[in-house]
């Protein structure tokens, strides 16, 4: 097995929940059943252990060892209630696979009944069900190029894995002026980063278009280039494009759609139509332009997520 596969299995073990790896249709018995009947049941169903239920409540478990004990002691006609193991270790369906594997290894438990929040039996986990589920998940992962999805998963869970009152991820990019060969490179990297972080395509597109317009402004209009900063929070994404270039004389004028100071050669490249800021405004939830002649320019763009999942849904933010 090559290294990426090992990582994938490890990833699956850490990220998979018990619910995914359990066998859902559990064979159960009542306390009044005879051990002889249990023996036949286990033989015919080809199982090695069976939980004992009194109504909804798990009161014990009968394993192969209990059956053998009953046979040796000539107690096959006795009821389950007198022969079962009363100490049952259960596991929550929301627990991690890691926890299940730890418990399965400990104290010789070969199976763990799985319970929901109300303590009701919903499945059973054995090393066999775990191995089968892992193989199934890996198979699925190969088919769906799960490798990419897992990477996305890992990156997107930074907001849950890193504990703080308010976590944010900050990405910084330097943009050189008049460097047309590389213009758009920062936007391209931002787009890829957002995809890795698990943003949905509509949100990725909105941010990518706005950032690209802002980046082109830095390339075209500043003499010194500038910096793009993207701050990703749980509930919003903030982009700042800052430069120490010539600044803007008339802020009202540049916000007019169609107003442009771009030279002819820029227009020949398909830019400089005076639509950049209007386009950014349309894609974002709020946009703020600060500038003074000689003191540089700062453009702040905010995208608000309507749920706590980064970029999960397109927010119906303010449109002016």
């Amino acid at each position: 097995m090559t290294t990426p596969e090992i990582t994938k299995v490890q990833e699956l073990i850490y990220t998979t929940k018990v619910e995914t790896v359990m066998a859902p249709n559990v064979v159960v018995i009542e306390p009044s059943m005879s051990m002889a009947d249990v023996k036949e049941l286990m033989r015919s169903k080809r199982i090695t252990g069976v939980p004992v239920l009194d109504g909804d409540r798990i009161v014990g478990i009968v394993s192969m060892t209990d059956v053998i004990d009953a046979m040796e002691k000539g107690r096959l006609t006795a009821p389950v209630a007198d022969n079962m193991t009363r100490e049952v270790s259960t596991i929550s369906k929301d627990a991690s696979l890691t926890e299940a594997l730890n418990n399965l290894g400990r104290e010789g438990f070969a199976r763990l009944p799985v319970v929901d929040g109300d303590g009701k039996l919903v499945g059973i986990v054995t090393t066999g069900t775990v191995v089968r589920a892992l193989l199934r998940e890996m198979d699925v992962s190969f088919q769906k190029k799960e490798a990419e999805k897992l990477q996305t998963y890992r990156a997107s869970h930074i907001f849950e894995d890193i504990v703080s009152d308010d976590t944010s991820v900050i990405l910084r990019y330097i943009v050189d002026d008049k460097d047309f060969a590389n213009a758009g490179k920062a936007s391209s990297m931002i787009k890829k980063s957002l995809q890795r972080l698990g943003f949905l395509p509509p949100m990725v597109r909105r941010v990518a278009v706005a950032v690209y317009e802002a980046e082109m402004n830095l390339v075209i209009h500043t003499d010194v280039g500038g910096e793009i900063t993207v701050e990703i929070r749980r509930d919003r994404l903030m982009v700042s494009a800052v430069d120490h270039g010539p600044g803007i004389d008339d802020l009202q004028q540049v916000l007019q759609p169609g107003f442009s100071t771009a030279p002819e050669w820029i227009r020949d490249m398909g830019f400089g139509a005076g639509m950049g800021l209007a386009n950014i405004k349309r894609c974002s939830d709020t946009m703020r332009l600060l500038s003074e002649p000689g003191a540089g320019t700062r453009l702040d763009i905010v995208f608000v997520f309507s749920e706590n999942v980064p970029g999960a849904t397109r927010s119906e933010g303010k449109k002016s």
Binding site: F180, G184, S188, R205, A208, Y212, M216, M269, G270
Partner: peptide, 17 residues
Amino acid sequence: MTGLTNPQVVRTAEMAG
């Protein structure tokens, strides 16, 4: 469809999906 051939056409396309 475009009549432009500079690299920004590719970048723009990439950003627009």
